[in-house]
Simulated scan of single mutants.
Amino acid sequence: MKLVLITGTTLVLLISLTLLIRWVVALGRPIKRQGRLATEIGAVTLFLPGYFGSRFSFGPLLKRLVKNYQADKSLVIIVKRTGRLKLIGELAAKRSVVQILFEDKTSKPRQQAVWLDQICQLLKNQYQIDHLNLVGHSMGCITIFWYLTHQQQHAAVTIDRVVAIAGPFNDSEIARNTAIVDSVPLTAAGPLKKRPIYSALAANIATLPASIQVLNIAGRISDQQKDDGQVSVNSAFSLRYLLNRSLRRYHELIVRGRRASHRLLHENRLVDKSIAKFLWTQ
Rank of each mutant, 00 (worst) to 15 (best):
S261C: 03
V162S: 09
R259I: 08
S222M: 05
A236T: 12
L123M: 12
Y147W: 12
I31V: 14
K124V: 11
D228T: 03
A155V: 07
E173L: 12
A93H: 05
R263P: 06
T45I: 08
E90A: 00
G28D: 00
K277L: 11
L17Q: 02
A156N: 13
L46G: 11
V162N: 09
D182R: 02
R81S: 12
L279Y: 09
V231N: 01
V114C: 13
I205L: 07
E252A: 05
Q99K: 08
S246A: 09
T178A: 04
E252F: 07
S96N: 10
R263E: 14
S96I: 02
I31G: 02
T7Q: 03
K67R: 15
L186H: 02
L101H: 02
E40F: 13
Y250W: 04
A260R: 05
K73M: 08
F278G: 04
P168S: 07
H154W: 14
W115I: 02
R36F: 07
Y127E: 10
K226P: 01
K73G: 06
Y51C: 10
P60V: 01
S232G: 08
T7H: 04
K67A: 14
I142N: 09
L61M: 14
Q34Y: 13
Q112N: 14
V12N: 04
S261Q: 08
S183E: 08
T143V: 09
R81N: 14
Q230E: 09
T9P: 04
G136N: 10
K226S: 09
N133D: 13
L75R: 03
S211R: 13
A164S: 15
V184N: 00
G219Q: 02
R240P: 06
V135K: 11
L116K: 03
R55D: 06
G53C: 04
V98K: 02
L3E: 13
R195Y: 13
H154T: 15
E267A: 12
I119P: 12
D72S: 15
I180Y: 01
R81P: 01
V162P: 05
T10E: 13
G89C: 02
A175R: 01
P109A: 03
H262F: 03
K273G: 12
R33V: 15
G28V: 01
H137Y: 06
C120L: 14
D228H: 06
I31H: 14
V76H: 00
L265S: 02
L5Q: 09
E267Q: 15
D182L: 00
L19N: 03
I88T: 07
L215E: 02
A200H: 10
G42N: 08
R176Y: 06
S57N: 14
L123H: 09
R220F: 00
I217T: 02
L46A: 10
H131G: 10
Q225V: 15
L279G: 10
A43Y: 11
A202G: 02
L101Q: 10
